[in-house]
């Protein structure tokens, strides 16, 4: 079976006032469909940029990015937006819920963008799955960090995407809350048959992935000690 994500010699150079910065310096990656992959590495190693490029939020300076057989890096902006809406769920360390909307409304947004008339009932079901059916009318500022991340998880999964990207999803949460969120993060995509690509500093979280890769200075490096496990 062909991999869901294929990265081929991806470079990213950002211009900054102090000069150009090589964020990604030739990244190759293949992720099998239905797997959970953890990317670890020190801050500034290019993990989040890699995720942004896979999400189509950033375009590589050079190289190819294929997801589900489509070359994301060659699509125009609208096509990438449509693709994200259909195929991708995304989770941030800082949750990034829209502060002016309630939990239910936040979860409904991806479906509403797709023109789904059943957006609200589907969003309600998604919130039930993360155990927040009693918090539907609360705004983000009225929710705890763990609850906000569960709302974000419901939002990431509500459109039944093939790929879920998560950037330090438990980085802002305490141990117990982080565990609850992590359990959901691994279980729910799997139930939907979605592929999970995860960035984390947390060795335990990385350890729960089918496969773990390490980044340093904008490229993958061999994992120290623990062997890479095949999916």
């Amino acid at each position: 079976m062909a991999p869901l994500i294929e990265l081929d010699d991806v470079h990213l150079t950002l211009r900054a006032p102090g000069g150009a910065v090589n964020v990604l310096a030739g990244v190759d990656l293949a992720v099998e469909a239905g797997s959970a992959t953890g990317i670890v590495g020190p801050s500034g190693s290019g993990k989040s940029s890699l995720l942004a490029i896979i999400a189509g939020l950033e375009r590589p300076t050079s190289g190819r990015v294929r997801v589900g057989g489509r070359e994301i890096s060659a699509l125009d902006e609208n096509a990438r937006a449509d693709w994200r809406r259909r195929e991708l769920g995304i989770l941030f360390q800082s949750f990034h819920l829209i502060p002016t909307l309630t939990a239910l409304e936040n979860v409904a947004v991806p479906l509403e963008l797709a023109g789904d008339r059943q957006a609200t009932p589907h969003a309600r079901t998604a919130l039930e799955r993360v155990g927040l059916d009693h918090r539907t009318d609360h705004r983000p500022s009225q929710l705890s960090g763990g609850e906000q991340q569960r709302v974000a998880l419901a939002r990431a999964l509500v459109a039944k995407p093939r790929l879920v990207l998560a950037d330090e999803p438990t980085g802002n949460l305490d141990g117990e809350t982080a565990r609850v969120v992590a359990d959901m993060l691994f279980a729910l995509p799997r139930e939907q048959g979605a592929t999970l690509l995860l960035i984390t500093h947390d060795p335990q979280l990385a350890g729960r992935c089918d496969r773990r890769v390490r980044m340093a200075e904008g490229r993958f490096v061999p994992a120290s000690g623990a062997a890479e496990r095949a999916a």
Binding site: A55, L57, E77, N78, A81, D82, W83, R84, R85, R86, L88, I90, F92, H96, L97, I98, P99, T100, V109, P110, L113, A114, R155, A159
Partner: peptide
Amino acid sequence: ARQRYAAAILKALGARRAD
């Protein structure tokens, strides 16, 4: 300020410029 932030999130969720 509010719209800029909302726009970034909505884009990540698959909103087109037209949306």
